[in-house]
Design a protein around this nucleic acid. Structure first.
Length: 434
RNA sequence: GGAGAUGUCGCGUAGCUGGUCGAGCGCGCACGAUUGGAAAUCGUGUAUACCCCAAAAGGGUAUCGAGAGUUCGAAUCUCUCCAUCUCCGCCA
């Protein structure tokens, strides 16, 4: 979300940015919103005048009423002034309605005007123009066949999709035994990994109110993702980012508390409305999973530094579990409207012979802060908008796919990287049941 | 979940029989005076957002947990919601 003042002063920059993002259909919105803004300011100016008059006249009434106690003839005068105020009441009421409507229209447009992208973002219309920046680790292809991840899990008696289907329906799973333990081990390891990087571990609420939901996402996203609790004003979170960013809504953070570097654990619940491709059976796309997330709220001048650090943490984490990854930079057309810059960390799948998304790191600039009224009180006492960033640390069900495929050995066992062993009871390998 | 109490400017409080209250007082903080320097003292100031103004100066509007209402006028009255505290119930 842009600053309306910025749009006023730099309409051409805003328009060029829209072109860079291949959203030509939004170009007329710029002039539209500026016209609405002008109209709105005129309405505000006029309404302020009327209110000023009303306040002045009301004060007179007060004075006259006071005097009327001694001199009853003043009562008539007071009534006359009252009538004057009443005469203007209709115009003011109409203006107030108009103000409300205009503000709503402006807000709607401002929500869809894309944030100004960083100059370093590659220009391109869709994800096929995303740029592979760098690979970390050799994408190895073993000389034995890598089965589908659920098959690997089944050899360990590690998953029961059938029971989950009976109990909860599609999109759920029972993880069991070593696989379930591995899932928890990855989470615990990721948690400690981030704590070692200086992040504060946090367990947030897993349900949030509707006003927070509408604060952090659009109606369309909400409809496609969020589960509502019946009879309550509560929604299950789709990611801990919802409650973590919600933590700061409407808050003024003292500058000395920056940067806020938090790593949060939560289960995530998603409706996942939309097509499920064949590669998405198993645990790739499900209604409930668990995730360790990292978020940073920092001074504007520090956000790019944090962005670099954050995606590198993901790379380091995956490399420490012997999983080859690459950094894929999102091009302008693939970048969500709120983001200044974003990249995915993709893990190598030896079975599919391609990389697939496991982390998504984003710098939102001040757009999220503006939208959610997150502010920082500076040293000079002035408030300003901080920058916000977020990145996946690890989402175990999806990362288990990469983990199992990359650490599977010819004999069917799965080796446990050194870093993970303390969380797996010291084991260096897990052995399939059949 | 039931009963009661409370929610005011960074903190603590006053106001709550509606008008001169955007709001008094104390503390804190900032600046200035005093001092060789400090303490103490004295003085001044001390929110946020928005609008008008080329800008500054200045002016205006809104905000006393949130929202709605009554009224010429609401911190003050009414309603809804939220939060906190106390007691009861229930529970990991």
């Amino acid at each position: 979300m842009l600053d309306i003042k910025f749009v006023r002063d730099n309409p051409d920059v805003v328009k060029q940015n829209i072109k860079n993002k291949f959203q030509e259909e939004k170009l007329p919105l710029v002039d539209q919103v500026l016209a609405l803004d002008k109209e709105n300011r005129d309405a505000i100016t006029r309404a302020s005048e009327l209110r000023a008059q009303r306040n002045a006249l009301s004060k007179q009434v007060g004075m006259l009423m006071g005097q009327a106690k001694k001199d009853p003839s003043k009562l008539q005068e007071a009534e006359a002034v009252k009538a004057q105020v009443k005469a203007q009441a209709d115009e003011l009421a109409a203006l107030e309605v108009k103000e409300g409507e205009l503000e709503e229209e402006i807000r709607k447009i401002m929500m869809v005007l894309p944030n100004i992208i960083d100059p370093s973002v590659p220009i391109g219309p869709d994800d096929s123009y995303n740029v592979e920046v760098e690979r970390f680790g050799e994408p190895v292809t073993p000389d034995f066949e890598i089965p589908y991840h659920t098959e690997i899990m089944e050899r360990f008696d590690g998953i029961d999709m059938d029971a989950a289907g009976r109990v909860s329906g599609t999109g759920f799973y029972y993880l069991m035994g070593d696989i379930a333990r591995l899932h928890e081990a990855v989470l615990a390891y990721a948690r400690d990994f981030m704590i070692d990087k200086g992040f504060t571990f946090c367990i947030p609420p897993f349900m949030i109110r509707s006003n927070v939901v509408t604060g952090v996402m659009s109606f369309a996203e909400m409809d496609a993702m969020m589960y509502k609790i019946e009879g309550e004003d509560l929604y299950l979170i789709g990611t801990s980012e919802h409650s973590m960013i919600g933590k700061f809504i409407d808050q003024i953070i003292p500058e000395e508390k920056l940067p806020q570097t938090l790593t949060s654990y939560s289960p995530c619940f998603r409706k996942e409305k939309g097509a499920h491709g064949i590669e998405e059976r198993g645990v790739y796309r499900i209604h409930q999973f668990e995730k360790q997330e990292m978020i940073v709220v920092c001074k504007p001048e520090d956000s790019m530094k944090w962005y670099e650090k954050m995606w590198r943490y993901s790379v380091e984490l995956f490399r420490s579990m012997d999983i080859p990854v690459r950094q894929l930079e999102c091009c302008s057309g693939d970048l969500a409207d709120l983001k200044v810059k974003s990249c995915d960390i993709e893990a190598w799948s030896p079975r599919q012979q391609k990389y697939f998304e496991v982390c998504s790191c984003s710098n939102l600039g001040d757009a999220q802060a503006r939208r959610l009224k997150i502010r920082v009180k500076g040293e000079n006492g002035k408030n300003y908008l901080p920058h916000t960033l977020n990145n996946t640390v690890v989402a175990p069900p999806r990362m288990l796919i990469a983990f199992l495929e990359n650490n599977l050995q010819a004999d069917g066992s799965v080796k446990i990287p050194v870093a993970l062993r303390p969380y797996m009871g010291g084991k260096d390998v897990i052995i399939p049941k059949h």
